[in-house]
Design a protein around this nucleic acid. Structure first.
Lengths: 190, 190
DNA sequence: TTCACCTTATGATTGAAATCATATCTGATG
DNA sequence: CATCAGATATGATTTCAATCATAAGGTGAA
């Protein structure tokens, strides 16, 4: 049920929660209980500007973890509000830290997970820095971002789906991409 | 000289390198030697699309680390080319891993560093999803992204510096921000 | 089969940010 | 002090992606 490396944790280290849309998982300043893993649904992490405006710090979706840093700090630094009803796993802080200290493989795997995420996010940031839609779509494709459907792909790379379709057409017409099927494209091999 | 948590590493764990612009630090497929920390200068991490096009996976600047994931994988997955001449520290893989296993505090600190980075990158990605320049600038300010000068700030939040200056002016005129000095702004308290 | 719905796809219009241009202010340096 | 480089700042123009509109192709359910 849990993704690696959390699958080695004993049953006492986590519990499954079912929450409705709009419910609060934790609030800024609450003592940190642990990391969370979303099975289904979505959660918004919110902070509040001094003027009172709400700032969405992050939006977590299915199969994602969030609040990882809470392992190493004492309190949550933002609010977590359920966007959609969700089933999620609370990975309790103390048992996870205990595992971290007693099990070097777990420690390594956890660190490796974070390091890989850092890498992935950097790639996405670099991608979003590309101004031209065509170049961005091409790069994203070459980097393997197109896994599901085009609309999801478009959202991930920060373009409207129309702009994405257009860029794809242009790239095919200009010979940089090959269309291998409905909604399927691949980078042309030299 | 080294930032936490690497400052606890023994001298044998690292060495300082001086490289010129254009030099290659490592190539895709090279056995991974370790993490790098840039003192000055900049490095581009590049991958190559099948069509032969160069893709910038990441650009690292002064005081940044890169190739963190190399600790946990055997080979580099991209090229590292010096953009500007740089002084950098090579944190050798084996000694770092040894420290990781023998020193739980180091392990924790390293993991915490990565977790915090993940958090920061997620915030930046969320920020880049904000379409309006004014809203983006406001959010970025409220989130504390303005640390150095405005041009750096502008780059970080994916706007031209002109658009950023304009957005700042508008926000001040509309009463959302207070200008506290040349290039200094703060969010208005309710 | 028919209907509804979603994805894919493309055309037309618009708006907002990039770009180009210019000027002032500040700090560093000789 | 004079000069120069860079940051700050704003105006004018252009560009390009968002948006709005529309339609064909596919899929699943009644």
């Amino acid at each position: 049920m849990l993704p690696a490396p959390f699958d080695v944790l004993p049953e006492t280290a986590y519990r499954v929660l079912n929450l409705d849309a709009g419910e609060t998982l934790f609030r800024q300043g609450d003592p940190s209980r642990g990391i969370f893993y979303l099975i289904t649904g979505s959660v918004r992490l919110l902070r509040f500007a001094r003027g009172g405006e709400t700032i969405v710090v992050h939006r977590a979706g299915p199969l994602e973890t969030f609040a990882e840093a809470s392992l190493f700090v004492d309190v949550y630094h933002c609010d977590a509000i359920l966007e959609q009803a969700a089933q999620l796993v609370e990975l309790r802080r103390d048992p996870v830290l205990r595992q971290f200290h007693s099990d070097p493989l777990f420690a390594m795997a956890l660190t490796s997970r974070f390091a890989t995420q850092v890498q992935t996010y950097r790639r996405r940031l670099e991608l979003l820095a590309v101004r031209s839609a065509q170049e961005r779509v091409f790069t994203a494709l070459a980097e393997g971002f197109l896994t599901g459907d085009i609309k999801t792909f478009a959202t991930e790379i920060g373009l409207s789906h129309e702009a994405t379709y257009r860029a794809l057409s242009h790239l095919v017409r200009r010979g940089h991409l090959i269309k291998t099927g409905r909604g399927k494209y691949c980078v042309k091999t030299t």
